[in-house]
């Protein structure tokens, strides 16, 4: 076991019990082992319904593991102190609509026991990072989806976290917005932060990630450096991805084909 691993998942299994009687429980994650080292950018890939969000929910203590365990900074995720040094961006961003961006960030900052000048400084820095300074006083209900996604990123950064857990950070953003997020992730990497993010955007993963993990049907199919995977499978990341999730295209995929489609097809076939 590496001592500098910041995120560690051991033999994780998550079952969702069905509401209907006598329906078998649905297994979302089975036997997952994963480790992310400090300073790494880790891309968590998988088709729709693969169990990415479920894994992230376990890391944040929202969903209890059926068996196995997960640790952040060596602390069991069920203890709230494990969340002191992380920033989290949820898959769908919904925030208190009656607050303005600034008020929202102040509120979350106070939950990290920030106060006074330190809090002011962090709020301004986070707003500046996501380009929301001009609209900081507007209530969130007047924000567009992309702006909400950006305020989500800002709230994830409010405590200057050492580990960022981002669930599809670029979904719903325009190309410029995506570029921006990519830049932010890269900047954080330069600052020595660890980033763990799930995505369907293979191109983005390829450019920013040190390592990737490919999840399918709750099982980890592969994990490792992007370059290693590409070399090992003698194909580009997209082809590797499609092969690993068991998708055999009727037509050979065109160069730069639409990623994510394969996932949906795989889902239907399963």
């Amino acid at each position: 076991m590496r001592t500098d691993s910041i995120l560690r998942i051991e033999e994780l299994r998550v079952e969702y019990r069905s509401r209907e009687l006598r329906q078998p429980a649905r297994v979302a994650v089975r036997g997952l082992n994963l480790e992310v080292a400090a300073g790494e950018v880790f891309g968590f890939l998988g088709p729709n319904g693969a169990g990415k969000t479920t894994t992230i929910n376990v890391l944040l203590g929202f969903v209890p593991p059926t068996s196995g365990a997960a640790y952040l900074f060596g602390v069991d995720v069920r203890r709230p102190i494990a969340r002191q040094r992380i920033g989290y961006l949820p898959e769908q961003t919904y925030y208190y609509r009656f607050l303005s961006a600034e008020e929202l960030l102040r509120f979350y900052g106070r939950l990290f026991q920030l106060a006074g000048g330190e809090l002011d400084r962090r709020v301004v820095a986070a707003l500046r990072l996501v380009d929301l300074e001009p609209v900081r006083r507007r209530p969130l209900r007047t924000y567009s989806k992309g702006m909400l996604q950006r305020i989500g990123l800002a709230q994830a950064l409010i405590n200057d976290p050492d580990l960022l857990i981002l669930d599809e950070p670029t979904s719903g953003l325009d190309p410029v917005g995506r570029m921006k997020v990519r830049e932010i992730i890269q900047r954080l990497k330069h600052e020595g932060k660890t980033v763990f993010f799930s995505s369907h955007e293979l191109g983005e993963v390829e450019t920013v990630c040190d390592r990737v993990g490919i999840l399918c049907g709750g099982e980890l199919k592969a994990a490792g450096r992007v370059t290693d995977l590409v070399r090992e499978h003698q194909a580009n990341l997209e082809q590797v991805f499609l092969r690993l999730i068991g998708y055999t295209p009727a037509l050979p995929p065109a160069e730069g084909g639409v990623p994510g489609v394969g996932g949906a097809a795989a889902e239907i076939r399963r």
């Binding site: 929202f62 102190i81 992380i86 949820p90 939950l111």
Partner: peptide, 9 residues
């Protein structure tokens, strides 16, 4: 909003 809230310590 409960999720980002509970993601805090």
């Amino acid at each position: 909003t409960l999720f980002p809230l509970l993601a805090k310590p």
